[in-house]
Write a protein that binds this DNA or RNA. Structure first.
Lengths: 202, 202
DNA sequence: TCACACTGAATGAATCACCATTCATTCTTT
DNA sequence: AAAGAATGAATGGTGATTCATTCAGTGTGA
């Protein structure tokens, strides 16, 4: 086996490969995507991919980290700019979560489907970036608890998981549906934050 | 794609193959499982599998249908026996959902991980059994709305998705964790139903 | 009761298409 | 001209599927 290759100045080609991989994985899934397809999507030769990534698995993991990092950065920088209460912050979080889809449907399909895979089959890879994402949400909840805006008796860790799961499932549906419009996203955002904050009971 | 091959008197062998496939898929995932591994797990020859299933994909789908049917039957028969209000019914639903894990961890891993896969890559297979599962939950919500126990303005379809997603995500975590005890399941059941019914706000 | 087809189920070694990975060669840059 | 980057045809391993063969059960006739 060949060892990892370092990244030199040519990030641009690396980027093209990652973009091509995202597109291909979103369309056909990891196992049904040929390396040669990624290469042609990226406009490079098959072998070139191995100058930037150790193997196909490494490409998958690298793609994850790259995109999750991007998402986390965007989310957290946008979240910082609000100074509303918990309800508003949660609504904003949900909206941002969904909006990232509209902007990049391939990314949504990739994240919703392949994240599960990696949770299980790439066990040795603990997926720290996804952990960061969850911690953001959990931090939001804990803050709210300290401010008395969230019931104390709820376990922030469990609740953050539940919220993420709910969003992810709705997102999966959104990402697989053909027509996606902002109005529909707004409707779901509003209803879900309402549901979480106020509960189901009248 | 799907096309039943045959089912003579020997359902027992078919059953063994499905059991072996479940075990293998849960452990290594669909794409990393060799047909020969399933065969040896089931105690049959490689070729025998093709007497009962058209190909590996067909085996995956058949396994789904078989297990989902079982889950739905169990869930709905248990749900019928309660006559409590909405809150109790929801708590029961959540508890049953989780309990199935304790009883059969392989099944939980298989469902949580591979269901996603199929949602996307086996698009032509519309997964009616999963639809039935969701409809059960949706029906529960609609009933509650008619009884005035659930806020009218919430969309039962969207809410059922969200609840399923939340449960599924928590289940994924449960199914991947090493120690699983009833007390922990009860704790999460109680907290999640409390959260859904009462909301996050104090 | 036994010997002998006959039939469908089961076997598992062999096939063969597929595709990740390699590396000798070519191209580009300094 | 030398170093580094890129190429893409060739390689080698893999594993789903096939099918010629074997096995087991059942019925028949003597």
């Amino acid at each position: 086996m060949v060892e990892a290759v370092k990244q030199k100045g040519n990030n641009e080609k690396r980027r093209r490969i990652l973009d091509g991989a995202l597109k291909a994985f979103a369309k056909k899934g990891f196992y049904n995507t040929k390396v040669s397809e990624i290469a042609s999507e990226a406009g490079v030769a098959d072998g070139t991919i191995y100058l930037y990534f150790k193997n196909k698995d490494d490409l998958l993991i690298s793609l994850f980290e790259d995109r999750m990092e991007w998402i986390i950065e965007r989310l957290s920088s946008e979240m910082e700019q609000t100074d509303g209460g918990f309800a508003e912050k949660l609504a904003l979080f949900i909206r941002l979560h969904f909006m990232l889809v509209l902007e990049n449907q391939d990314l949504a399909e990739f994240i919703t489907v392949e994240l599960r895979q990696s949770a299980k089959f790439v066990k040795e890879y603990s997926n720290p970036k996804f952990g960061d994402y969850l911690k953001m949400l959990q931090g939001l909840l804990e803050q709210a608890q300290q401010a008395g805006e969230l019931r104390q008796e709820l376990d922030a860790r469990l609740v953050s998981r539940a919220i993420f799961g709910a969003l992810d499932e709705v997102l999966l549906q959104l990402s697989l549906s053909t027509k996606l419009d902002v109005a529909e996203v707004e409707r779901r955002t509003a209803m879900l934050s309402d549901m979480f904050i106020g509960g189901l009971a009248p």
